[in-house]
Simulated scan of single mutants.
Amino acid sequence: MATSPKTAHEGLHSEQGAQRGDHPDRAGNPVIKVEDLAWLEFEKPDLDAAERFAHDFGFATAFRTGNELHLRGTLPGSQCVIIRKGPRSRFVAPAFRASSRADLDRLTRAADGTVRDRRGAGGGAVVDLCDPSGMPVRVVTGVEQLPQLPRQEPLVLNFGQVLRTNVAQRPPLAPARIERLGHVVLETPRFERTVDWYQQNLGLIVSDFLFFPGQRKRGPTMAFIRCDRGATPADHHTLAMHLGPSRQYVHSAYQVADLDAVATGGEYLKKRGYHRAWGIGRHIQGSQIFDYWRDPDSVMVEHFADGDMFDNTVEAGWAQMSASGLAQWGPSVTRDFLGAKPSPHLIRDVVTALRADDNEFDIRRLIGLLRVASA
Results as ranks from 00 to 15, higher is better:
1 M>H: 13
7 T>I: 08
12 L>M: 11
15 E>L: 14
16 Q>Y: 15
17 G>D: 13
21 G>S: 06
26 R>Y: 12
27 A>I: 09
29 N>C: 04
34 V>Q: 05
43 E>Y: 00
50 A>H: 07
52 R>T: 15
55 H>M: 12
59 F>P: 01
62 A>L: 14
65 T>N: 06
66 G>C: 06
67 N>T: 11
68 E>Y: 08
72 R>K: 15
73 G>M: 04
74 T>W: 13
88 R>L: 03
89 S>D: 07
91 F>Q: 01
92 V>L: 09
95 A>E: 05
99 S>C: 03
99 S>A: 15
102 A>Y: 08
105 D>H: 06
106 R>N: 02
106 R>G: 00
106 R>H: 14
114 T>N: 05
116 R>C: 00
120 G>I: 11
120 G>N: 09
121 A>Y: 15
122 G>H: 03
132 P>G: 05
133 S>E: 01
134 G>K: 14
134 G>S: 04
135 M>G: 00
135 M>I: 15
139 V>A: 03
147 P>V: 14
151 R>E: 11
152 Q>R: 13
154 P>S: 08
161 Q>R: 13
161 Q>H: 15
162 V>M: 13
165 T>S: 11
173 L>H: 03
175 P>K: 08
180 R>C: 10
184 V>I: 14
190 R>F: 04
193 R>Y: 03
193 R>C: 05
193 R>T: 11
197 W>E: 03
199 Q>E: 05
204 L>H: 02
207 S>Q: 10
210 L>C: 07
214 G>N: 13
227 C>N: 05
227 C>D: 03
231 A>F: 07
234 A>E: 10
237 H>A: 01
241 M>S: 05
243 L>C: 09
244 G>L: 04
244 G>P: 07
247 R>Q: 11
247 R>H: 11
249 Y>I: 10
249 Y>F: 12
255 Q>R: 15
258 D>M: 09
262 V>A: 01
264 T>C: 01
271 K>Q: 08
271 K>P: 00
273 G>I: 06
276 R>C: 04
281 G>Y: 11
281 G>F: 13
283 H>C: 02
289 I>R: 00
292 Y>F: 15
293 W>R: 08
295 D>I: 12
295 D>H: 06
298 S>M: 10
300 M>Y: 00
300 M>N: 02
300 M>P: 08
303 H>N: 07
304 F>D: 00
306 D>N: 07
310 F>D: 02
311 D>G: 07
317 G>D: 06
322 S>N: 15
323 A>K: 09
326 L>W: 07
326 L>V: 01
327 A>H: 09
329 W>L: 05
336 D>A: 15
338 L>R: 13
346 L>R: 13
351 V>I: 14
352 T>W: 06
353 A>D: 04
354 L>E: 00
361 F>K: 01
363 I>F: 08
369 L>N: 06
